[in-house]
Design a protein around this nucleic acid. Structure first.
Length: 477
RNA sequence: GGCGCUAUCGUCUAACGGUUAGGACGGAGCCCUCUCAAGGCUUAAAUACGGGUUCGAUUCCCGUUAGCGCUACCA
């Protein structure tokens, strides 16, 4: 039975790299018909913030993927202690009474610290006595030193891994404040929650040797491991909010109007490939083809720039997904963005407009700017020079608009009716179709760049169209 | 410093010893066209470097270089 977990620590907002880890876990779980677990790794009480937890939940919910079980490490501390003490009782760990201040000292002095000999070799009696006397201590794993030994595991992405115990320091299991370290809590929970596959960032690859040691000491079989290449900034550095700003936060993408599934699609393509040439994939397709074999080993660059915070491929994928949405769904997704821009149109109106702007938006937040003239009662001010068509002058523009006004007063407001009427009008007036359409477009839309004219007029309706043409005529006089 | 991981167009990637090194985004150009999009076509653009192994290396091995990660009583 496949059981995977995403285990964020609530010490910051939900990072896009974390989101990708979540997604790969989720994909694997769904592909295998397994269970997706969310575990909040909140053992570092000093650094946890509620705000961060909110950000994580908000981000994950926005992804619209969901999870099956939810845990919180801070509610499982007894388990962690029990497992740590079991390891201590077996003699596979020992108490280290060195003060934390002195520890910092040695870290600075030499890079290759392995253990404090006096602590590692302290007799059990003395150790028990000092502990009973209330002296603070950390519990350290007693990494085997007697013979050269290689710790091994097989990573589903990086292959066979091995490291000599001589290169692994006696890492801490329990802190002197009685709380477990990340390594301890994580492994104890992975055992207890019967996690079958640990899928996480490559920054944990070397930690895994320690984890293998813990699983062994706890008498449990180690799960399978799959480490994911990291997401990095264009300068190669790890993504950080301080250095790279809001682009590393999932909510930034949400607020810009990415579709959750487009964003998921984009993140999947960073460090993973379906091996055929597909790029745009639905959630179902991703579940169908996902496997660890497709995961790359090199870090992937999120290609953002200071003046353009979103990876162009992410934006393109979003546009692709946007185009596949039904009018109903797009209307639903767009409405909050329209509201934020101060528009509160009737749903029926949005449904009419949506097909006209669907392939003219890259992000949902583009919607209001692309479609404002459909919803605004009064057009935003524009330069009357815009009304003048190619190879024409103000007089021509006026002539065209006056003719258009006459024609539109009587024309049938359907695509067919409008096209016939306006093309005929162009011919009669002796101007090219483009010269006819452009002034009308600007008159009704307030700008040259807009959706096709006939559909636009149709949605706007006769009254609004005529009113705006009148206003344009006035502007030109 | 020690240990580990990685290295194909600007970016994401494909090619599990034999390809004119493929696709996508982005760029350039053309077509379509009532503007803008969308769509179609064309094009520029890569195997980090040096050694091996092999009839033959992007692919396997070694070294160099570079990048990243770990080296906390953070996760």
């Amino acid at each position: 039975m496949v059981r995977v977990r995403f285990a964020p620590s609530p010490t910051g907002f939900l990072h896009i790299g974390s989101a990708r880890t979540f997604i790969f876990n989720w994909l694997y779980a769904r592909h295998q018909g397994g269970t997706m677990i969310l575990r909040i790794d909140d053992t570092d009480v000093g650094r946890n913030t509620e705000q961060s937890e909110t950000s994580i939940f908000e981000g994950l919910k926005w992804l619209e993927l969901g999870w099956d079980e939810e845990y919180r490490q801070s509610e499982r501390l007894d388990l962690h202690r029990r497992v740590a003490e079991g390891i201590l009782a077996k003699g596979l760990a020992y108490r280290d009474f060195t003060a934390a201040a002195a520890e910092e000292e040695r870290t600075r002095e030499s890079g290759a610290w392995l253990f404090n000999a006096d602590m590692r070799e302290m007799s059990r009696d003395e150790s028990d006595r000092r502990a009973a006397a209330g002296e603070p201590f950390v519990i350290r794993y007693r990494v085997p030193r007697d013979s050269v030994r290689e710790i091994r595991f097989r990573d589903a992405v990086y292959g066979e891994q091995s490291k000599a115990t001589a290169d692994i320091e006696d890492f801490a299991l329990m802190r002197s404040n009685g709380l477990p370290t990340y390594h301890m809590a994580s492994c104890a929970d992975d055992i207890d929650l019967r996690i079958s596959h640990v899928v996480r960032g490559q920054d944990h690859l070397t930690n895994t040797f320690k984890h293998v040691l813990i699983f062994e000491a706890a008498g449990a079989a180690a799960p399978e491991f799959a480490h994911l290449p990291l997401l990095v900034a264009p300068d190669g550095a790890k993504l950080s909010k301080r250095k790279h700003g809001p682009v590393v936060s999932v909510t930034t993408y949400r607020d810009a109007g990415f579709l959750p599934h487009a964003f998921v699609n984009f993140l999947c393509l960073l460090g993973w490939s379906p091996k055929d040439d597909r790029e745009k994939m639905t959630r179902e397709e991703l579940v169908e083809v996902f496997s660890f074999e497709g995961i790359n080993r090199a870090n992937a660059v999120v290609n953002f720039r200071e003046d353009d915070p979103f990876d162009p491929k992410a934006v393109w994928l979003n546009a692709q997904h946007l185009m596949t949405l039904s009018a109903e769904e797009l209307a639903d997704r767009l409405t909050p963005f329209l509201a934020a821009a101060g528009f509160a149109p009737a749903r029926s109106k949005v449904l009419q407009v949506v097909p006209l702007i669907q392939e003219r938006m890259k992000l949902l937040r583009d919607g209001p700017a692309v479609a404002d003239f459909f919803f605004a009662t009064e057009l935003a001010p524009y330069d009357s020079a815009e009304l003048i068509p190619q190879k024409g002058d103000a007089a021509l523009a006026l002539k065209v608009l006056r003719r258009a006004r006459e024609v539109l007063a009587g024309a049938e407001f359907t695509h067919e009716g409008l096209e016939t009427a306006l093309r005929a009008a162009a011919q009669e007036t002796g101007v090219k179709a483009g010269q006819m359409f452009q002034p009308i477009r600007v008159a009704v839309c307030g700008r040259k760049v807009a959706p096709p004219l006939f559909e636009t007029l149709q949605v706007l309706g006769r009254d609004v169209s005529l009113k705006r043409i009148d206003q344009a005529i006035e502007k030109l006089q």
